[in-house]
Design a protein around this nucleic acid. Sequence first.
DNA 1: GATAAAGTGAGTACGTCGTACTCAGTTTTT
DNA 2: AAAAACTGAGTACGACGTACTCACTTTATC
Lengths: 249, 249
Amino acid sequence: MTGHENLWMRPERPARGPRPSFSRAALAQAAIRIADAEGLEAISMRRLAADLGAGTMSLYRYVTSKDEVFDLMVDTAVGGYLPEDRRPPDDWVEGLRLLAWQARRTMLRHPWLAPLAAGRPQAGPNSARLMETALGMLDGLGLSVDRMLTLVGAVFAYVNGYIQSELADSEALRRSGLTLAQRLAQHLSYIQSLIATGNYPMLERMTKEGGREYMGTDDRFAYGLDRLLDGIAAGLPPSGGSEGAASSR
Amino acid sequence: MTGHENLWMRPERPARGPRPSFSRAALAQAAIRIADAEGLEAISMRRLAADLGAGTMSLYRYVTSKDEVFDLMVDTAVGGYLPEDRRPPDDWVEGLRLLAWQARRTMLRHPWLAPLAAGRPQAGPNSARLMETALGMLDGLGLSVDRMLTLVGAVFAYVNGYIQSELADSEALRRSGLTLAQRLAQHLSYIQSLIATGNYPMLERMTKEGGREYMGTDDRFAYGLDRLLDGIAAGLPPSGGSEGAASSR
DNA sequence: GATAAAGTGAGTACGTCGTACTCAGTTTTT
DNA sequence: AAAAACTGAGTACGACGTACTCACTTTATC
């Protein structure tokens, strides 16, 4: 089985023949630029090729399908989760928290990233580097690798889930083309019609008491993340003198 | 502003004219049936209309765009999160845990649901009922509604994130049409090529020590959920005599 | 009960998409 | 120098979402 059926195993340069006009990385960057500026749905093979100054079908020399373009985009962008200094904090809680915040920052910068990444197994070099980094933070705690994987998976599940819900509203707003006020008015008038039935006392309280103690989206993210890390730390066999509770950022 | 620009505010039956051949609910059910059997990408307006015995363009009498079909599907399926007995457990931790497990069961039954729901704001009647139920579980704890929303949001963020990662692999496998063994072999051979560089000691341990203490996907879900609920409970002002730590299923 | 308003389903058409296939030309290895 | 294997461009096909037209049917109103 020496086949190159996998994108990441396929050599970028062919063994023979002329040098490609651009690199996979350049392809990924061009796609990312389009998606950042105009949304994921603006990416088509024709459009991408035009931006690269190539023929549409020439793209298929670099990639076997549009889906592989998405793979390239995701792995490239996931590189942004990694801290730039090689030495992350020694404390594993701080390390994972840092990773979570950087992941969030990156996904907010690239609103297409979270939904795209959530739908596909992470298989590229940057994803591997990320997993290596995360696991490395848990080394020396006496955990089995299986336990480590479960732990890291839980944290990333929360991070991805939170950011997707965070983005869902803003992206829906962007797609609808309405103003925020119009959108809120629409939603609220529906909620009001439900409340009028008398069967939604909590939603009624929400419309009346909501907003007083409202946390910003940063704080809401921190809340769940810190609670999750607290719970994880509390459930771990004590190794040194640990107990993570402080909120960072 | 008496406009019906919102799907959920638009009356299903017109004020005059013949009775529609089918209901919105039937439309949603048909779409769900297709998506369950053949995946989300099998849903097209032509296909859906054919299944309903209608003309393609007739669907636009029920719905203003394909996106609204998705809205209907999501809200209908989200109804499955709700416990069928009106009285959920009194303990809020058990209540949220139950909701989480039912959400997961529903999303696994409908593999298209999690990605679709994650990408759009929840605005339908079942989503409202769900939120009402979740908030109701937190009533009487002395929390502000804003706090309750943050808390519930954190739990659902984890649930959605976990299930999406859980589904990502199985869906990619389904789409690729390969066997599980082929897929694993492909992935592993790439990981091996990375390990060969010597820069991935943790991934190396993963391939060597992984699988011994491996938890099933149910247990991995429970792990993160229980840790999160533990952390939340620990951070709450004690109201009765609480402390949630037991894992349920 | 007659009337007309407002719905109905079917058909056709347009622009866009992913991508298969062909072909002349170019670059690199042998 | 020769030839293997690439390159980019062009054309074509089937499927998609949905706008538009039209003859017909049902219902609320007078």
